[in-house]
Amino acid sequence: MKSNETSAGPRLLGSADVRRLAASVDLRPTKTLGQNFVIDPNTVRRIVRVAGVGPADVVVEVGPGLGSLTLALLPVAARVVAVEVDPELAARLPSTVAEYAPDLAGRLDVVRADAMRVSELPGPDPTALVANLPYNVAVPVLLHMLETFPGLRRALVMVQKEVADRLAAEPGSRTYGVPSVKAAWYAAVSHAGSVGRSVFWPVPNVDSGLVLLERREPPTDVDRSAVFAVIDAAFAQRRKTLRAALKGWAGSSAAAEDALRSAGVDPSSRGEQLTVADFARIAAVRPARR
C-alpha cells in the first residue's frame, strides 16, 4: 500500500502527484489567484476530521484546485460540490477523481464559477463548507457563502494565519475587526488549529490556520445589511469614539450619541469593544434622516 493510501479511502495526493497533475494542465501557480496546493495527505485528513463531515452532508468546496481536499471529502460526504474559477482546473478535476477514486466519482459535481458570484448550486442545498480558501479573497468568499446558503450548518476553512486570527478574535482584542463581527453574525467562530508552510506547493511566505464556524441564529431580526452598515462605519475610523465614527451614519454627532444611548452603548466606546449583538441594537434604533 502506498504511503498516501489507506484501507479506509482512496489514494490522496502527495507532492509528486500534485506536480504531475499541475504539469498535465501546464499550470504555473500564481499569487494573483492565491494558488498554493496542499501536498500532504495527513493535512487534508485532518481538515476533514475537524470539519466533522458525515454521510448526510452535502459539502461545498471552494477552490478545489488539483483535488487534494476533494479526494479526502468524497469518502465521508454524501456529495461534494466543488466551485472552481479556473477553467482548466475545473475541467481536470473529474478526471483526477476518476483516476484516484473511481468508485466515488458519482458523488462529485464541479461548478466552474467565481465563488463570489455563485447564487445557487446543483442538487440539494449544501450543509457544510470545507475549503482551502485563497488568501486574497478568503473573508468575502466566506461571508458570501454563509449569506447565500443558509443551510450551511458548519464551515471549516483554511486561511492565512492573520485572517484566522481576525475571524476568531474576541471583542477588545487587537485583531478584532470587521471580519470578526460579520462572521459572528452567522456563526460561533473558533480557532481549529495551525498549518505550517511546508504542506503547500509552492511554499507560501505565511503560515495558515484552520477556522471552524458553527451556524447560529442572528442575534436579532434587524436586517443584516443595516447591521453591517453600522459595523463598517464603526471600523472605518476605529481610533475614533463611536460618537464620532457614526456621525455620518446617523446624520450628526448628536444623533449618533442619541442612538448609542438608546441602544445601551457608551458613546465614548470604540468599535473593537462591541459584540455583534451591540451593533444590532444600534442598527435597530437608527434615527430617521431629516
Score class of each variant (00 low, 15 high):
31 K>L: 10
283 A>W: 02
176 Y>T: 11
256 A>S: 10
9 G>Y: 06
214 E>H: 07
78 A>D: 15
74 L>I: 03
226 A>Q: 14
53 V>R: 10
42 N>P: 15
276 V>Q: 02
23 A>F: 02
289 R>Q: 11
49 R>Q: 14
57 D>C: 13
11 R>H: 11
269 S>W: 00
174 R>H: 12
96 T>D: 02
40 D>R: 04
113 A>I: 12
214 E>I: 05
40 D>C: 06
99 E>L: 11
134 P>Y: 09
286 R>W: 04
126 P>H: 06
248 G>S: 07
92 R>V: 12
120 E>N: 09
260 L>G: 04
95 S>R: 14
77 A>S: 13
123 G>I: 15
285 V>I: 02
177 G>W: 01
58 V>P: 08
229 A>M: 09
116 M>Y: 02
104 L>W: 05
250 A>T: 06
180 S>V: 02
232 D>E: 15
190 S>P: 00
283 A>G: 04
125 D>A: 15
90 A>V: 10
45 R>Q: 08
215 R>K: 01
158 M>N: 05
84 E>D: 09
233 A>S: 13
23 A>Y: 00
250 A>M: 07
8 A>D: 15
199 V>R: 01
107 R>G: 13
144 H>Q: 01
97 V>G: 09
226 A>M: 10
75 P>V: 14
31 K>S: 14
284 A>M: 03
235 F>R: 12
196 G>T: 13
267 P>S: 03
36 N>H: 15
162 E>Y: 03
210 L>Q: 07
280 A>L: 01
65 G>A: 12
109 D>L: 09
198 S>Y: 00
31 K>D: 10
129 L>F: 15
210 L>I: 03
166 R>K: 12
209 G>I: 01
35 Q>Y: 10
63 G>T: 12
187 A>M: 04
53 V>L: 10
275 T>Q: 04
162 E>V: 01
270 R>E: 07
145 M>N: 00
84 E>G: 06
35 Q>D: 01
267 P>C: 06
100 Y>K: 11
191 H>Y: 00
239 R>K: 11
267 P>Q: 09
130 V>D: 08
12 L>K: 12
173 S>H: 06
62 V>L: 01
28 R>K: 14
149 F>C: 02
241 T>D: 06
219 P>G: 05
214 E>Y: 03
220 T>G: 05
23 A>V: 09
107 R>P: 10
31 K>F: 08
40 D>I: 05
116 M>K: 12
96 T>K: 03
171 P>R: 02
231 I>V: 15
17 D>R: 08
158 M>E: 08
215 R>F: 05
79 R>P: 11
149 F>Q: 04
161 K>N: 04
245 A>L: 09
178 V>D: 05
58 V>H: 08
125 D>N: 06
51 A>F: 05
32 T>F: 14
83 V>P: 08
46 R>E: 14
70 T>Q: 12
28 R>L: 10
54 G>Y: 13
57 D>W: 11
150 P>F: 01
67 G>Y: 13
48 V>Q: 04
109 D>K: 09
279 F>P: 08
138 A>V: 04
285 V>W: 08
209 G>T: 02
193 G>W: 02
281 R>F: 00
129 L>D: 09
91 A>K: 13
31 K>A: 14
158 M>Y: 00
106 G>A: 11
130 V>A: 10
119 S>K: 13
